[in-house]
Design a protein around this nucleic acid. Structure first.
Length: 561
RNA sequence: UGCCCGAUAGUGUAAUGGUAGCACCCCGGUUUUUGGUACCGUUAGUCUAGGUUCGAGUCCUAGUCGGGUAACCA
């Protein structure tokens, strides 16, 4: 018990349950979990947490985690989604091995089990219309009424159900319902639907079925069939658990344990499939993989490393408390991962020309730069330096305050990996806009230090104007300025709460070594942030996405009124 | 309005009934050829009221607040 180097290793309540089950010998000590998405959309950050939980728990306990497509509703499902979901799970770093399943593979078994329930007098064919069913069900404070078809004989039910399957009835004309309790305080138990008639093509079973099982009827039985031991889902299914239990117990089959945890909510981030779809269809974003989208494919295109997403999920905790995790936590892990792996590069997002008056007109030289100060093995690269440079506009200021450690007239700064630079004169256009800085450099400071020992407070980055390459840089901000994304005050369309400047495109000047950078690769633009090469990039036109900015300890001086 | 679930620093998350801890954010400092990283530090918490107990964040009762829930969706 007293582990020698006992870290305060905290286990969440789900892992606690599972540990207890293992030590008590339940399920022969085995652990089988599952991730059961419906293939009707793209996976998002919320799914990532569920994936990490289910695959993580299985791996920790020498168990397996199944990937199962919950494809019981042909109206909304498609193989396109099946593919993207598999892609996303793999990208996240998980492997289901041979454990790939589809609820639709169980349609025949489910049908047989439904027959079994009918024979046991626990299910019946109901002729009530959709609206009538709702009316008969009653409400929270309204008693339910038994369906007039509730007491049909087993024989009649069997016959009718067979004919439902055979396609004798139109959509919605009949349904198969479980006979439970029309006055239960839990609405899910007021004779829930097991089958509905849908003459609809299914992406896997084609046209062999015209009746399809509902979620509750399909899910627990699929779990049971696969030998799932712990069926982990989100809180909104808590009220479904009694029904889940009722079905497996009525059937007398293996009984997996359903455990619910709180869905992941992230500030400024939307996880409603419906609203996400509206963003895409309304053209508010460029697609499901728009770098501003919380989809896994969006995060990937944005440049978020998979290990950062995993770390984030692992550190948000597993509880039944419905909270809101700050986006800052995700960004912490993104920066942490990228800091160790991303090559550094110099890029000027808002170029301001600098002319070094004492540097020979037609000369240039190569300067050496570390690819990654965090990684000795990352090596060194060379970048050209010359008489004309670009620096960031924000790195120069007239009438700068004392705390401004960058360039201003008469003050000296260090050009990273190069020399000390002093500004002598500011050139403006007719509109008073600064268009050029006339400067001098000190050739003696080539090592970045002055032989006479004088110091500079700031170091800024630069690119050689003559050698720099143009690049499109897409700067992203949150889609929703409000912490609770997608919520709007009464009478206001939630789409109006969209951040109008969530995307800003810059025409940047970047160092020439970036030419040919591979799509998807990440860089740290020094002093600016992390960026990755977008798929829109080509050999002659570079396109970068800002993944996340660097943390900045610098507070811009107070604006003078 | 019924039922179910929840409530610990600003945020998220720990604590066999026995010293309320950790991380993020914020703020400050040291180091630094990135105002980055790393390191150090400051601020700040058990929803309320009763009860059980030597002792309650933890157990009980009531209340308050928050979330979920009435599809032939999942």
């Amino acid at each position: 018990m007293n582990t020698p180097e006992s870290e305060p290793e905290h286990v969440d309540f789900i892992r606690k349950i599972i540990n207890d089950d293992i030590s008590s010998g339940k399920n022969d000590g085995k652990v089988v979990t599952r991730f059961p998405p419906e293939p009707n959309g793209y996976l998002h950050i919320g799914h990532a947490k569920s994936i990490c939980l289910n695959f993580g728990i299985a791996a920790e306990n020498n168990g397996v985690c199944h990937l199962r497509f919950d494809d019981t509703n042909p109206e909304k499902e498609d193989t396109e989604y099946v593919e993207s979901i598999m892609d996303d799970v793999r990208w996240l770093g998980f492997d289901w091995g041979s454990n790939l399943f589809y609820a639709s593979d169980y349609f025949e078994q489910l049908y047989d089990w439904a027959v079994q329930l009918i024979k046991a007098g626990k299910a019946y064919v109901c002729d009530l219309t959709f609206d009538e069913v709702r009316e008969y069900r009653g409400g929270w404070n309204k008693e339910g009424k038994d369906s007039p078809y509730r007491d049909r004989s087993v024989e009649e039910n069997l016959d009718l159900f067979a004919r439902m399957r055979a396609g004798e009835f139109k959509d919605g004309e009949k349904s198969l319902r479980a006979k439970i309790d029309m006055n239960s305080s839990n609405m899910n138990l007021r004779d829930p639907a097991m089958y509905r008639i849908r003459h609809q093509h299914h992406h896997r079973t084609g046209d062999t079925w015209c009746i399809y099982p509902n979620y509750d009827w399909a899910h627990g039985q699929s779990d049971s069939l696969e030998g799932i031991t712990h069926s982990i889902c989100t809180l909104e299914f808590e009220d479904h658990r009694p029904l889940y239990d009722w079905y497996v117990e009525s059937l007398g089959i293996h009984h997996p344990q359903q455990i619910e945890f709180a869905r992941l909510n992230v500030t400024h981030t939307l996880t409603s499939k419906r609203k996400l779809l509206q963003l895409v269809e309304g053209g508010h974003v460029s697609g499901w993989d728009d770098p501003r989208m919380p989809t896994i494919s969006g995060l990937r295109r944005r440049g978020y490393p998979a290990d950062a997403v995993r770390d984030f999920c692992a550190h948000t905790g597993v509880t039944k408390f419905n909270g809101m995790t700050e986006l800052a936590l995700l960004e912490l892990y993104v920066r942490g991962s990228l800091n160790k792996t991303a090559s550094r590069a110099m890029a000027i997002l808002d170029p301001l020309k600098v002319v070094i008056e004492n540097y020979p007109d037609d000369e240039s030289e190569m300067r050496q730069a570390h690819n990654n100060p965090e990684d000795e093995n990352a090596g060194i690269r060379e970048m050209p330096f010359g008489r004309e440079l670009y620096i960031e506009r924000a790195d120069f200021m007239e009438d700068a305050p004392k705390k401004f450690f960058r360039l201003t007239v008469g003050r000296e700064v260090r050009l990273k990996n190069a020399f000390f630079l002093k500004c002598n004169e500011v050139i403006k256009d007719d509109a008073g806009e600064i268009i050029e800085l006339r400067c001098t450099y000190d050739p003696e400071t080539s090592g970045g230090k002055a032989p006479d020992g004088r110091k500079v407070k700031g170091t800024i980055h630069w690119v050689s104007a003559k050698h720099a390459v143009d690049a499109e840089v897409r700067m992203y901000d949150v889609l929703f300025p409000e912490e609770k994304a997608g919520s709007a005050p009464e009478g206001v369309d939630w789409l109006e709460t969209l951040n109008p400047s969530s995307l800003i495109v810059k025409n940047a000047k970047v160092e020439p070594s970036l030419v040919g950078a591979e799509v998807g690769s990440s860089y740290q633009f020094e002093r600016t942030g992390y960026f990755c090469v977008d798929k829109d990039s080509s050999v002659d036109s570079l396109v970068f996405n800002q993944t996340v900015g660097l943390k900045s300890g610098y507070k811009p001086p107070e604006k003078k009124a």
